[in-house]
Amino acid sequence: MSTTSEVAPGANLALIRKERGLSQARLARMANVSVSLLSKIEVGDRALTPTVAATIGKALGLSMAEVLGKARVAEDDEERLTALRSAVRDYDLPGRAQVEEAAVLDAVESVREARDAARVHQVLARLPGLLRSATTHAHSVNTVEAWMTLAEVYSSVYWLAARHRWMDMAELAVTRQRWAVEQRANPLGEAIAARDRAGAYLNGGDAEGGLMVVDRAIARAESTLSGEDRAFAVGVLNLRGMTLAGRLEDKAEGAREAERHIASAERVADEWFSGGDANRHSMIFGPQNTATHVLATRLDLGRPQEALEVAENLDAVLDGLPATRVAPSRLNVARAHLDVGNREAALANLSAAWEAAPQMARIHPTAREVFRVLASLHRRSNPELLRLSHMSGMPL
């Protein structure tokens, strides 16, 4: 069975169920979800949420990412993906040619800019060569800074893989990232690597495991770092923690864990970053990004109205944040509006997400799922849905 799919997540779930010869009733019993919910998800009347995808995946022996469906790359990107996999494999094999530090740093900055702008194709195009040159440079000079640069490149590899739900590459990337920061003592690098490792648990549907990684990393950061480095590390780890808590199957436990991480993140953000969010090593932390994560967490906890309350001042929250934060936040608001029955607001936010980051929206499971549900619910021609259909390649 292939879980690489160009269909929306709910439709992909239906394909997986049928390929396994399961009835809706049988799968619903296995996953402990209602037949009504499963039926609505498959026909497009309800969105398949990450939490439900993880629950069904666990029953099927699949990761959440596999249920949502891995995103394909364009035909002309296949060679670049193969080159990237090869570079990840050769993590301890530096090249023979000398690499100039300035050239590596310029290339890292170029990938940062492409990543912040959610230009997915450019990130993929630039990563294979950068990964090899950063590897060679780190092995050559053996400094904390060089190994941290290499770790940041692996973080971008993880980001790219996670966006496409390529879990094998995502898990290998975070392993390599951790290896890089361990070559020379680097507590901040370790904290960022732990944040990405917990993300691999998140994408795999194991929220409990991810929370264990986060809590252990917070304790270590608090004991090994000080000042703004400590605040930044604890902050980004708490953002990951609240997201993981929102995905717990036990929503009462999820709410307790989420509030703990939310309170810690907000306190650190107010104390250290009240002047604005900080962007370090392709990570962002501060009051604005904390608010976007609170919004997403409230939604994952099944509280769409609370999520919309966080979003009341959304333009100000998103002002100055990169497209990689703007688009997912708009998608979460679109999903919240769907949950409360406001189709027009859902469509407006879906369109805003596409405008902010079209390459990300094309492969984002929430973007594809919200579009599918809106197309099903409208049941008539809609100019904006038609425009998004042309942009996404998804039929009405």
Rank of each mutant, 00 (worst) to 15 (best):
G227K: 01
H281W: 15
L331K: 01
D250R: 05
H281I: 15
G235L: 02
L308I: 01
T243A: 15
F285I: 00
T324Y: 05
P304L: 03
T297A: 11
R298V: 13
F285T: 00
S329G: 09
I284L: 13
L321A: 10
E253F: 11
L331H: 02
R280P: 03
I262F: 05
A269R: 01
D319I: 10
L331N: 00
R330D: 04
M283C: 11
D270G: 05
A311L: 14
E253A: 12
F232K: 00
P322F: 00
N279H: 12
V326G: 02
R230H: 03
E259G: 10
E271I: 04
H281D: 12
L239T: 03
A265Q: 06
G275D: 12
F232G: 01
R298S: 09
E266M: 08
T324N: 04
L237V: 02
K251S: 08
P328C: 08
A231I: 00
N289I: 15
V268N: 00
M283I: 05
V326P: 03
G246A: 08
G275C: 07
A291S: 15
V234G: 07
Q305F: 09
D277L: 12
T292C: 08
M283A: 09
N289R: 15
A269W: 00
R260L: 03
E309Q: 14
V234T: 08
R267D: 06
